[in-house]
Amino acid sequence: MREQTPQSRPPLSSRNLGTRTLDTTTLVVTPENVAFDFHLAGPFMRALALTVDLAILIGFVTVVGLILIFSTGVLGGNIIGQGFWGIFLFFLFFLWWGYGGAMEAFNNGQTLGKKALGLRVVSYSGLAINASQAMLRNILRGADLVPPFFPGVFAMMFNERFQRLGDLASGTMVVVENRGARPSIARTELSTQNLEPLIPKHFDPSVSLIEALAAYVGQRKELSVGRRRELALILFEHFRRAWSLPKSVDPDLFLCALYERAAGGRAS
């Protein structure tokens, strides 16, 4: 590994803004001038959410339909008038065309199916959608699901945000809110104080070295002790030879100390 001079480092921000098309995230800049990533929902998760919604709708309509069959005297017995079928059809229209739009408008971008799968509809800007966007994208679902071609699936393949036609027309995207798999806040709970003096004062790590260290420190807790040692040794060997470190130093702990110094030094 070759140490770079500070001048040759790429600007820190350019990494996030360049080529991102391969990733399933989209970058949003907030009014607070912070850029953060949204994880986009792929066709499979969205189809699942739609299935849950359809199951809820069909279940609800079936129950109401059964109640009407038994109470309007289709099978004999006549509790309420046949006219309730008219009201039923009237509500069926609003349920079919309005369920998704109303849920997303009043529930901050989530139908019940999306809530179950941890998905949410947001605008390009990352802001919550308004009623008009919610209605439009749901009415246009009809066009997205025209068999046999399912144009919406094709549309999702040809843009960076996995948008179907309804999303394109209303300026929305579907993102994953991954509350379940919350990453733990990684930190080195071990004391690295006694290793500090071993690192030379002029140590000036490259960006890629810091990133490699950060990735290691972030994930070391999920690894077994043996695996940690095996991984850490690869990098540790280089520094042991360069700085002639004693053999007794624990590679894992040393990389933690190195990370503390490398990243901490940059802040000052």
Binding site: F36, G126, R182, R187, I210, E211, L213, G218
Partner: peptide
């Protein structure tokens, strides 16, 4: 360059608070 898990966690926290 915070550890990756922490940065990812903060991305998510900001995204959710933002919405």
């Amino acid at each position: 360059r915070f550890p990756e898990g922490t940065t990812r966690y903060l991305h998510q926290l900001v995204a959710e608070a933002h919405t």
